[in-house]
């Protein structure tokens, strides 16, 4: 388990290697399109996150969460 986690950390750090790719500012338009957003619809995302959080055995992953609930 530990070695797997360590591997994942290495993969994450390797993303830095991509830093050499330079994309000029005038080429960034596509990346700014709304459909490229990490979370295209925040309210839908919030709702789904809450459902998965309360109905599945695992949670978290994309940053900070809110509070718990008494959902059962």
């Amino acid at each position: 388990m530990k070695s797997l986690l360590r591997g994942l950390v290495v993969i994450t750090l390797c993303l830095f290697v991509f830093s050499c790719s330079s994309v000029n500012p005038w080429e960034r338009g596509i990346l700014a399109k709304p459909e490229m957003a990490w979370e295209p619809d925040p309210l839908v995302g919030q709702l789904q996150e809450h459902v998965y959080f309360s109905k599945e055995g695992s949670s978290g992953g994309y940053g900070a969460g809110g509070g718990g609930c008494g959902c059962n």
């Binding site: 500012p25 005038w26 080429e27 960034r28 338009g29 596509i30 700014a32 399109k33």
Partner: peptide, 11 residues
Amino acid sequence: AANYCRHAGVT
């Protein structure tokens, strides 16, 4: 103006 257009997604 050009930068505005880039922001709006124009490539």
